[in-house]
Design a protein around this nucleic acid. Structure first.
Lengths: 322, 322
DNA sequence: TTATCACATGTTATCGGTAACAACATTTCA
DNA sequence: TGAAATGTTGTTACCGATAACATGTGATAA
């Protein structure tokens, strides 16, 4: 492995000039710069990040703190993880996965935090002494990255209204967190705007629980019912309930989900959903955190992704495949 | 952050003695050792891994090289990834995710390689100049970690025979790779041993393709047919085909999968499968690679995990839930 | 012409560790 | 008893980079 000194020797300059070419190229004359760059290319130079970290008093480690109790098999977090990992990697930062308990182990340059609940702010987040970004909207003024949750359910609700449904239910997760309140708000707002009466139900984020609840709500009564679900997991349960009741999907019952991470595609029929580009969001989150670190930890602002409506067989017979 | 020098000052010894207490405690007198350890505790000492990496000429980076074209949303790889990440993290190694194209970017101390196909050995794996471990069995004599694929399909096939099925098909993936051949072999061997005629079909690892193929094979003919599938993805397709044909599962058609990573649980009915403890396997893989690196890269041998049969509704009406 | 300044480049010290060797004390054994 | 072996601790140099400062050059202005 070639080092700074090797390049310096080859280009007949000092180590410092080589270092400058890398970090402050404008401070080196064009002539020497070219010499050095050529030498670097010829010797296939790769900087030693450990050395740089040492002298800059950095760890080159970013922690991903997942506060929610999570199932490691959950594709949602796996996608987030890989998005972050890919981006950090590009900038030669390492990712350390930590939880509530292990969060203090080892040093780091910054954190990405997700899965926070109301109680976590006082206890954990307010106490942070490093730059961080929250993955998920919050109303405490902390920098975050999220999808526009309210617009997401607006899109699905409007879609169902367009299809002619009059009875449209909302199946949410029983958490009073900003993302959930926003999804419920998007639904309520759209229903009111169309003069329809909202009916909201809240439950655990589980397909089985949702299936039971849906079985009750879809029985008899109205021949055409649609359900706006706050997650694909819940939507899967509702689809199953519909099939079990012998309802024709999407004519007698239409269902929309939220997330668009894997689950939507393995259901049968496939689920119309709001796609959150989690991998991309993870990348952006990492990128913004690094930027925040490099600018000394100053506030960097929020980033809200536009939600994307993916139409599938749970609402339309032959959707345009893409 | 306290450093070696801080500890040394506090304990009134030299830096070197502190370093020895950490790396070669037997070379330091019990008296001084205690002094140093106390100082370390009091100052809450955490070693600087960048500095150590620098002086030991290590990168503290392990690459995970995935040769197979992969869907990043695939829970299988996500589990592997997180298993490896958790273990590496414990030893303060960073994980870098690379593919065929990006594999040469950046330096590393070792690699975990997976998804290799026959052609990859000459081109890539034989040329490696760092210690590595393959995730997945191979017949080239390279160290690997895998589940016992042959025994896996033996277990599922025997299970179906026990249930009284006489016509038992095998749905495999159309790859002539060791893991696939082993899964086919486990099936064939068990069928022969019971005097039953094997029928093998090979296809793309896709639930839709499997559904089409199963639709053909499950129609008419035999009132009771079972299918041993080489992946849960294929099994999901077969289950759907069975339901579409109006067959009663598990009486008229029974299906087993392979992998036990998420997919098996979201199917309805849930799928009897061979569980591969991927997260645990990833951890072990990382642990063995580090061991291999520390012992200078010498061969370390293979590790084969025992497969575990998980019985669910696709083969038994009311399985014992656990 | 010469003091001053800006700019380009080199020198030195340093980050936090560890290896190699030196120095000293203590045993061991002829 | 004293030379050699052994064990414990300290000194020095170095890993590969960068910051801070020092030096040297030519241009500019008084």
């Amino acid at each position: 492995m070639a080092t700074l000194s090797d390049i310096a020797k080859k280009a007949a300059v000092s180590k410092m000039t080589v270092s400058r070419v890398i970090n402050h190229p404008e401070k080196v004359s064009a002539e020497l710069r070219k010499l050095v760059l050529t030498a670097m290319r010829e010797l296939n130079y790769v900087p030693n990040y450990a050395a740089r970290a040492l002298v800059k008093n950095r760890t080159q480690v970013i922690k991903l703190l997942i506060l929610e109790e999570m199932d490691t098999t959950e594709p949602y977090y796996m996608n987030l993880l890989s998005g972050i990992a890919i981006e950090l990697d590009k900038h030669h930062y390492a990712l350390q996965l930590v939880t509530r308990n292990s969060r203090a182990i080892g040093n780091c340059d910054g954190l990405i935090i997700t899965g926070m609940r109301a109680g976590d702010y006082d206890e954990i987040i307010d106490q942070m002494d490093r730059p961080f970004i929250l993955f998920g909207q919050n109303d405490r003024g902390y920098d975050y990255v999220d999808v526009d949750n309210e617009e997401g359910t607006e899109l699905t609700t409007k879609h169902l209204i367009h299809l002619g449904f009059k009875r449209i239910l909302f199946f949410g997760i029983d958490l009073k967190e900003p993302f959930m309140l926003a999804r419920a708000a998007g639904y309520k707002k759209t229903m009111s705007a169309s003069g329809l009466g909202p009916e909201l139900f809240f439950m655990k984020n589980s397909s089985h629980v949702a299936q039971e609840e849906a079985a009750k709500q879809l029985t008899g009564r109205c021949p055409k019912t649609a359900v706006v679900c706050a997650s694909d997991r819940i939507a899967i349960g509702v689809v199953r309930a519909g099939l079990a009741l012998g309802l024709h999907i999407p004519d007698e019952a239409a269902i929309t989900g939220f997330d668009g991470v894997f689950l939507d595609r393995i259901s049968c029929p496939k689920i119309t959903t709001i796609r959150q580009p989690i991998i991309e969001m993870g990348k952006v989150c990492a990128r913004r955190l690094l930027q925040k670190i490099h600018q000394g930890g100053d506030k960097i602002g929020n980033l809200t992704f536009e939600p994307e409506l993916i139409i599938r067989e749970s609402t339309i017979k032959k959707p345009n495949l893409h």
